[in-house]
Design a protein around this nucleic acid. Structure first.
Lengths: 250, 250
DNA sequence: CCAAAAGTGTTGCGGTTACACCCATGA
DNA sequence: TCATGGGTGTAACCGCAACACTTTTGG
């Protein structure tokens, strides 16, 4: 390296430092807002879509229910914050989770401005039951959920609509079922969430033709009638064969 | 009101005040983060999808391009902030705008932690051309856009994918065309954005059968061949007749 | 009269819907 | 043996894809 190059190198380094300081100082001047994540945790039990809520620990929301949420830590990506909330509150890992929408009405939180990012997650209530730590946690039927704090009812509604739409194009709903499930259970799931009736034979044909169901060779054993076959969903195969394009339709 | 009731009323008021203070103090303790909105502004010109970018005014991003963004003001809902950015930068009002996703990687901004909410907007470049105030603003071809600051390339990619998907289920793409347009222009729009070829006759049949196109009775007049009819899109009719359900498909 | 794009119908295929009967199991 | 849901096939219909020629305009 020539000395001219060395000097130019030093100069460049100084410029970089100055530029960095400039940016840091600029960011210092920005208004700051507390950020939370709120998880809409769906479960499926008794042929009903449920949502996991906790009693508000704020005096002014005495008796009201809230979503599971928390502030974002410094240097924590919001996806990670949402996973952390799930872990801390339910003890579960590896749960399906997706960002849905950010809510920012100035007065949505009575304590001052707080922006929240809503996440939607789906888990199997049977697995989950073992891990609930906090007895102020309860599963509520989504359709009748009410008396909620903040704008959490609105967030729930948005996430429910999101789920209904997403179910049609993605098999995320299977996260609500046990690993092995009967076709009846699967159909009940779709019927309950979408709030429609489906023809049993056509539903079967549809799922079999997608060819993502693996026959376990096992049967239901807790049923008071002819037991149905149990299937697993082939998530690997799905992720290689997703549909790309379904045509213009509105 | 009895004096007991009055006392109880005062007590309740005090409780409320206390509770409010409690919540406010709690929110005070939350970590705070600067929030920005970034608008991915799409246009359509020369049969190509374009995106409006501005040169970064930060020294360390010398020569790089960024999305149009700004900090959220105090007490400003983020949707409003995004509309404000659009107004301030392009002079346009009443532009189609939708929240897409929140980006929160801890080091996405070199000046420290900044969380940004990405909005996608679509506007007609002809109308818009008149209003550009800042000559560091430029339309870039989306496919070849590069050399972007921050994580703005990633945001652009996510919004482009979002647009491709959204186009199939919602007529938002029509915001990219002039009010009156030919079917050829409409088809070019879909072909360019979705990056596919479509059969002309089937495309026409499809749109005519949806029955949202209003024949203006007018014709193109700037073409060097047989002029096509001009149509308007009936947004009112659309908003009353949206499809609800398109079947399970994944 | 030539180039360039507008405009227009039909056919075949595949997927969705609608629908009814026999079977296996537990009580 | 009865009640309950499991499991299965077929026919009509509809929407989508594939495909070519004539018409209109400007140059």
């Amino acid at each position: 390296m020539s000395s001219a190059e060395a000097i130019s190198g030093i100069k460049k380094q100084e410029d970089t430092n100055n530029a960095l300081e400039q940016v840091q100082q600029l960011v210092e001047t920005y208004p700051r807002v507390p950020i939370t994540v709120d998880c809409v945790i769906f479960g499926f039990d008794n042929n009903e879509l449920k949502v996991l809520l906790i009693r508000s620990d704020l005096e002014m929301f005495d008796g009201k229910w809230t979503l599971l949420g928390d502030f974002a830590h410094d240097d924590e990506e919001l996806d990670d914050a949402a996973y952390r909330v799930l872990r801390e509150r339910t003890g579960m890992r590896d749960v399906y989770l997706e960002q849905v929408k950010t809510f920012s009405k100035p007065h949505r939180h009575p304590g001052g401005r707080v922006i929240t990012v809503a996440y939607c997650s789906l888990l199997n209530t049977e697995h989950h039951a073992l891990n609930i730590l906090d007895n102020e946690l309860h599963w509520h039927t989504v359709k009748t959920a009410c008396n909620m704090a903040f704008d959490h009812k609105e967030i729930l509604d948005v996430c429910y609509k999101w789920l209904q739409k997403r179910m049609l194009e993605h098999p995320l709903g299977l996260n609500l079922l046990p690993e092995k499930f009967s076709l009846r259970e699967l159909q009940n799931l779709y019927e309950a969430i979408l709030d429609i009736k489906l023809d049993r034979r056509n539903f079967r044909k549809k799922f079999f033709s997608m060819d993502f169901l693996i026959d376990t060779g096992e049967y239901e054993d807790d049923v008071h009638h002819r037991p149905g076959r149990l299937y697993r969903f082939d998530f690997d195969k799905y992720s290689q064969n997703k549909k790309k394009w379904t045509g213009i339709e509105f």
